[in-house]
Design a binder for these strands. Structure first.
Lengths: 116, 116
DNA sequence: AAAACCTATCGTCTATTGGCGATAAACAAA
DNA sequence: TTTGTTTATCGCCAATAGACGATAGGTTTT
């Protein structure tokens, strides 16, 4: 190194620079738990799930009336919960009935119980 | 309405447009639960917490060796866990020792148990 | 005093999230 | 067939998240 500024120069001999393009390998269940947690990481989605637990099931429109949110926003949250596997939708024409996905709910519950 | 396109016109008489600038009021504990869940919503942070549970405590540098991430990235994740209250740091010169925040851990555990 | 070590923070970049209105699509009802 | 109802999706925008390198700042160690 012919040109280095002694004021800013640091030695990083021990810890080489990292770049995580190597896509980290996580422990068993870590990614699954994080995925569930991420879906739960918004108060509206928690509230939707609490609502679903009380009512056992409900329609999208019910939720739109409960929350001061646009219909498209509620639909988006439902989509995320569905993608995470926490709920499932069933066409009950002309509406769609959303319920807790009990199989995955048990899995999530077990993952959190095991974690804490 | 003198000028409306019949092809695109829809009536939205029943469900008025919403704008959530009114900052939603959530049920008790809903926001707290969502905040914890959000902090848990990344596999690296789950892995850090698992590590902390095994080791009971550890230093930032230990984690940087474990994960293929830059030191600044690990530090950022630790900051988020600290902001969520799940961990706490103690200056153990020249290092910083991070531990689970057991008080808040219990609170989080109870919130999730109650939720599931 | 200087060099080395450890961690936090800053600035930057890109990707994702969360909100909205408008529109599409599917179906029921008239 | 047309109209209405219900939900999902698209496009847009602002804000946040997640990664990085560089640097600052504090403490040892030499």
């Amino acid at each position: 190194m012919s040109h280095f500024n002694p004021k800013t120069h640091r030695k990083f001999t021990i810890r080489a620079m990292k770049r995580s393009l190597e896509t980290i390998e996580y422990q068993k269940n870590t990614e699954a738990l994080a995925k569930f947690a991420k879906a739960l990481g918004h108060p509206t989605r928690i509230a939707i799930l609490k609502h679903l637990k009380n009512q056992s099931c409900c329609f999208t429109g019910d939720l739109v009336d409960v929350f001061p949110l646009a219909q498209s926003t509620v639909s988006q949250h439902l989509k995320e919960l569905k993608n995470a596997g926490l709920i499932q939708g069933e066409l009950k024409s002309p509406k769609i009935k959303y319920c807790i996905n009990h199989d995955n709910w048990k899995i999530a519950k077990a993952l959190f119980q095991d974690f804490f």
